[in-house]
């Protein structure tokens, strides 16, 4: 059984704004009947102010799809179209006190229906660029299509690369078999064969490394993980090194994110592999307040 929040259950059992909207002047229809989720969003927009006067939905889908649709209509009523376009799928999930990773696509569908309805109102053609694959990484809700596309676009060849670029596989590690399968397939297309990652740059067992080399390696690890974090509107900076303790600052969306501890753990692991010694990563609180949670896609 899914772990649905009270709010998801409440919106499923008592959906708001369900049914056809007679005088709708904007309609968005998205979803995929093969996947079992499809949504029609109907809006009544004031032509003068572009304010959403009323909204309703019809949904073919599971409990969280119905709850996400219901939440969306409640959230956008009274907003102008431009304001509504700022509502992200994470906002929908947050409104419902979160969704299970397997169900995040329900909030994505809500966001897409909104885009489609507004495009419909403005006489634009809305094209979907979202193709969904089987869920591979359950910790960060990352699907096969996303991993495959990223592997292709960036010429990735190891599981570690995939973790760095997509975060997939960076949590419990149970999905590494699935990631290896994707790598094997894409590498075969490039005429290469998948090899298990060779251990990172061999560090002299004696541990004799100059201070300069050590600092360089620490900086390199930080630089390597930054792109992945920046993609989620976050960032990490090296603050100070004190023996075995490395101080970093988590920035942007990473700061205060539910996943912060997990991210730090991953970076610390990489740090230890690069240095060949035990080190501890300690976050230094950012002075700017956290703008929100990490978007696990």
């Amino acid at each position: 059984m899914w772990e649905y929040s009270e709010k998801v259950q409440e919106h499923f059992f008592n959906p708001r704004n369900a049914g056809a909207l007679g005088d709708a002047n904007a309609t968005g229809e998205v979803g995929s009947i093969s996947c079992g989720d499809a949504l029609r969003l109907m809006l009544k927009v004031d032509p003068e102010t572009e304010r959403i006067l009323d909204a309703s939905f019809q949904t073919f889908g599971c409990g969280s799809a119905i709850a996400s649709s219901s939440a969306l209509t409640e959230m956008i009523k009274g907003m102008t179209l431009d304001e509504a376009l700022k509502v992200s799928n994470q906002d929908i999930a947050d409104y419902l006190d979160g969704l299970p990773p397997e169900k995040m696509h329900c909030s994505v569908m809500g966001r897409e229906a909104l885009e489609a309805a507004i495009a419909n109102y403005r006489g634009e053609v809305w094209a979907d660029d979202h193709e969904e694959g089987a869920l591979i990484c359950k910790c960060f809700a990352i699907d096969a299509v996303m991993i495959e596309d990223t592997v292709r676009a960036n010429n990735l060849s190891t599981v570690q690369d995939v973790i760095n670029y997509t975060k997939a596989g960076g949590g419990c590690a149970a999905c590494h078999e699935g990631i290896e399968e994707i790598l094997t397939k894409v590498l075969a297309e490039r005429g290469e064969s998948f090899k298990v990652t060779p251990p990172p740059s061999p560090v002299a067992a004696s541990g004799k490394m100059s201070t300069l080399e050590r600092v360089k390696r620490i900086q390199q690890v930080i630089e390597d993980v930054r792109p992945a974090l920046q993609r989620d509107r976050g960032d990490i900076e090296l603050v100070d090194i004190d023996g075995k303790t490395i101080y970093v600052s988590m920035k942007g969306a990473c700061s205060g994110c539910q996943m912060e501890a997990l991210t730090l753990q991953g970076v610390q692991q990489k740090m230890m592999e690069a240095l060949g010694e035990f080190v501890k990563l300690v976050p230094v609180r950012a002075t700017t307040p956290a703008p929100g949670l990490c978007n696990p896609k």
């Binding site: 229809e29 998205v30 979803g31 995929s32 009947i33 499809a38 949504l39 029609r40 193709e131």
Partner: peptide, 15 residues
């Protein structure tokens, strides 16, 4: 009852 010709009446963007 079901809408007339359900597949036509509701054809979401990606299928």
């Amino acid at each position: 009852g079901p809408v007339t010709d359900p597949a036509q009446a509701f054809a979401p963007v990606y299928a």
